[in-house]
Design a protein around this nucleic acid. Structure first.
Lengths: 149, 149
DNA sequence: CGTGTACAATTGAGGACGCAACCAACTGTA
DNA sequence: TACAGTTGGTTGCGTCCTCAATTGTACACG
């Protein structure tokens, strides 16, 4: 998760503004964008749908619906898993990578414009780190050595 | 906005857990709770609907629907404004104050339990302060001298 | 080799919320 | 008084997301 992702979650109105811009210019919602980015960062440009859900802080059903849209326009496709027939990978297509590439520059600029002058780089990092530490709070599956109990 | 409110916004799963508990025990969603609290804190225990919307980071239509529920169970009622016939106040009733009182202790305990061990008090304050500084980010009505521009 | 439990993914139903459009009332200008 | 522009509030509609239930597969255990 990039540094500012958690900050956007805390700021509904900022997220809306960004999402609207992204949608107008590239036909992507903020969640679409983050899904593409998660896939682009992943090994082989693909992720199990369950893992993508965790990464986006969505339920599996939310991911199914999110990917529906991305699959229908060819930015993501399904890929089978050889070792486990239950899992379906979400695989970033070349078109998806291109779209992400096209959107990322403007998007990151928008983010910088939003945060600039409000938060120093140091603060941004500290904040993101602290929020990161809280991520998964309240998640029933949270036992990944978070320095807890 | 209390210190942890912004932190909950950044943590969807934690917010869901709290909301579920609140709903099971007191019949209130997290937003219901925060609306009651905003009214309880306000002068005369009442707020213009527009102001409540800003406080809860909701649009006016969201507030209309949120208050629908609270009005239907008698926790909030409508009150007219003498000087401006357009405005309707959301007025906390005695029942609403009682319900808030009943819920607050357990709720704050739940929050403490969630955050405890992850964040020191100092970190909590620093984080909340920084998030506070970002609040309203992207809001078109943001011209309150945020050191921007 | 069946049988029970766990898990990935999807589907149907419903909730929360934003946006756009709307109405009513306030304000300033002439 | 007449009119335009702004603001408070509500409603219709669409979107996104969760929850609960379901299907198909994996894996342990007798």
């Amino acid at each position: 998760m990039r540094a500012w992702t958690a900050l956007l979650r805390a700021n509904a109105s900022a997220a809306r503004v960004l999402s609207a811009g992204l949608e107008a210019e590239h036909g992507l919602t903020l969640n679409d964008y983050e899904a593409l980015q998660a896939l682009a960062d992943a090994e082989g440009r693909r992720l199990k749908r369950v893992d993508l859900a965790r990464r986006l802080v969505l339920t599996p059903s939310g991911v199914t619906r999110l990917l529906e849209g991305l699959e229908s326009v060819g930015l993501v496709e399904r890929a089978a898993c050889e070792s486990d027939l239950r899992v379906t990978y979400a695989q970033l297509t070349d078109a998806g990578a291109d779209r992400l590439e096209a959107a990322s520059c403007g998007h990151e600029g928008s983010i910088r414009a939003l945060f600039e002058g409000r938060l120093s780089d140091g603060e941004l990092v500290a904040l993101a780190e602290a929020l990161e530490r809280l991520s998964g709070l309240g998640d029933p599956t949270e036992d990944e050595g978070n320095g807890f109990g």
